[in-house]
């Protein structure tokens, strides 16, 4: 991993003493700092706390908020809690995955987005709910996803694919959304 990351981690480790109970708080700090858990960092933590690496690895893979791979710039959490499910959360998730173009692991190739399903963000009264980074959005129907994500996309020159497609198809052309025919 980059030297700079290790450099960030060292001072952070100093703040904790070497008790096992600190394992999860330490990993949370590393996750918050690097947006993922670098392999080297886990080895370092195992040495510090004197626990087997297999234990640290187990904890790091057990809890949902840890990630062993770098995450995108924006973390998009789509709620799949029950209230959101009955109001179409699954469709919102699928739409978000398509719009951001993330792979199976949940991160887009340009490292702009990581999309993740979560089980309830506690705003069930406003379902379906989505959280991008620290902002929670209410009533996110699937048809609103594209618009919502625009503000998180990198600014691109006006020739980008999205802007080329006219908002309303020109008249007299046969409208066919795709090219798979």
């Amino acid at each position: 991993m980059p030297q700079s990351e290790l450099g960030q981690i060292e001072p952070l480790l100093q703040e904790f003493d070497n008790t096992r109970a600190n394992l999860i708080p330490i990993l949370q700090q590393i996750q918050a700092t690097c947006s993922y858990l670098p392999q080297e960092a886990l080895r370092r933590v195992a040495r510090k706390l004197q626990v087997p690496l297999s234990d640290v690895y187990q904890v790091a893979t057990f809890y949902r908020c840890f990630s062993l791979k770098p995450r995108g710039k924006h973390l998009v959490q789509v709620c799949l809690g029950t209230a959101c499910h009955v109001r179409g959360g699954q469709k919102v998730l699928e739409r978000t995955q398509v719009e951001t173009g993330v792979d199976a692991a949940g991160t887009s190739a340009d490292m702009q987005f990581t999309v993740e399903a979560v089980r309830c963000l506690g705003c069930c009264g406003l379902a379906p709910v989505m959280r991008v980074d620290k902002t929670t959005f209410a009533h996110v129907e699937q048809t609103k996803v594209r618009g919502l994500l625009t503000r998180y996309r990198p600014r691109k020159p006006a020739t980008s694919e999205a802007e080329k497609t006219p908002a309303v198809p020109a008249e007299s052309t046969l409208v066919h959304g795709g090219d798979h025919a």
Binding site: P52, S54, D55, Y57, Q58, T61, F62
Partner: peptide
């Protein structure tokens, strides 16, 4: 040894 362990849930 503690060489192997569980991962995930």
């Amino acid at each position: 040894a503690g060489a192997i362990g569980f991962s995930g849930r």
